[in-house]
Amino acid sequence: MLQKIYDWVDERVDITPLWRDIADHEVPEHVNPAHNFSAFVYCFGGLTFFVTVIQILSGMFLTMYYVPDIENAWRSVYYLQTQVAHGQIVRGMHHWGASVVIVMLFLHTLRVFFQGAYKKPRELNWIVGVLIFFIMLGLGLTGYLLPWDNKAYFATVVTLEIAEGIPYIGEMTKTLLAGHPEIVGAQTLTRFFAIHVFFLPAALFALMAVHFILIRKQGISGPM
């Protein structure tokens, strides 16, 4: 039955090449921990992706309760944390995932760096990877404000002060992020929320797509 559906779709849309690009390829020995345990260093990229998926899913569930508004943001998080069934676990996954993803990205970057895997012809993918790292840091920065508790508020005040200190464009940047040249408040929270759940994830998905397409095109770097 499944096979029939597949054939029916395949006849019209020709999905076999797509499938082949995604799944039908060989894993060379030097990246396979089953052959050589030290190849576990090749897992960090995959684990980064795995945690990113956790972040996307847990984040989607968090928005079912979270209210991006200074009156209710903290209350909604508190309610989620103390009252909602499994709310504490979902929020915990998103909280810890944010840290673990940075650790995994860091390890993945170090693996690629120390193996010199960024060399020709993979320069472009390295740049895309560094951009992904920046986006992740941006997600961490904006997500930190959302619970609207003291640590969130005061860390953001400091961040915005630093942004303001940049010569020439500092004040503009601050106003753009905070929604007001002086006040860190309602506008700031909604802007950070929008950046955290729409702008940065959109950029992240695009960059991840490029990252993976390039890997499939170029193959994984050979043994050293």
């Binding site: 200074i70 903290w74 504490q88 619970p147 609207w148 508790d149 003291n150 640590k151 508020y153 005061f154």
Partner: peptide
């Protein structure tokens, strides 16, 4: 996740001048 619930502090109080601001660890 189970061993360490995500921390939450009191609601943001901009008048709390004594608060020591700290960013996330990274």
């Amino acid at each position: 996740v189970l061993a360490h619930p995500a921390p939450l502090e009191g609601p943001a109080d901009p008048t709390d001048a004594a608060y020591l601001p700290l960013p996330d660890w990274y």
